[in-house]
Amino acid sequence: MSAPYPTRWTRPPQIIKDRRWRIAVQVGIVIYLVLAMGTVEVNWTRVYEGLERGQRFVMGFLQPDFASRWRDISNGLVESLTMTLTSTVVGVAISVPIGIGAARNIAPVWIYRICRSIIAVSRALQEIIIAIFLVAMFGFGPFAGFLTLSFATIGFIAKLLADDIEEIEEAQAEAIRSTGASWWQVVNYAVQPQVMPRLIGLSLYRLDINFRESAVIGIVGAGGIGATLNTAISRYEYDSAGAILLIIIGIVMVAEYSSSYLRKFLQ
């Protein structure tokens, strides 16, 4: 074959077509990485000393000690679980009217604006930051945690619920409306059946998230298993810490499986 076919082929660039830009971006990335790595000051002797502690933690994880701190662990767990359930119930209950109000297709403009800004505030702030404020206002303990999680639930559920309502089939709402139904009847007959399964699914999902978060906000004093974990770690009791982490992982796994089962069952 002496036909004039090329003997070289290189893959044409897919995203950035201009060669100069490509080089600039690549060089930029390398410079950034060098600079970023430069900011990481590592105290190697401290890390080296830490290895032994790390080993103890891994051992603690493999041979967890549930028994010696069981009272603290069970107290923390009860606080976390009750906090999770109550905050999810209250959060969802508040989310439903806000979610309906934040749906552009069924709410008047002024209500829509108010509800959307509540959602935005709730979503913008991290749970832990809200917890700091609420602990400062309401004092230490699970009540502040409950308020934090309820508030965070509102941002999550109301946003997704509102988006769902905005995506319902307009034809069904139209049909109900054309029968002369009132606003409440439209919501009840046209909107509710379409979004109800999703709402239940989202609530279960949020229950799972709230439990995970309840393990965190304890660090800033909002009660729950997080507080117990914080204490265990600061006392260097890695076997108790390992036990707590395994309990958290176990509960999350159970929650995930049972909620996917429950969702299948409800649909």
Partner: peptide, 13 residues
């Protein structure tokens, strides 16, 4: 994507 030259010629053909 560094195929031998004859593979590339063949592919073009």
């Amino acid at each position: 994507r560094r195929f031998p030259a004859e593979d590339i010629t063949r592919a073009y053909a």
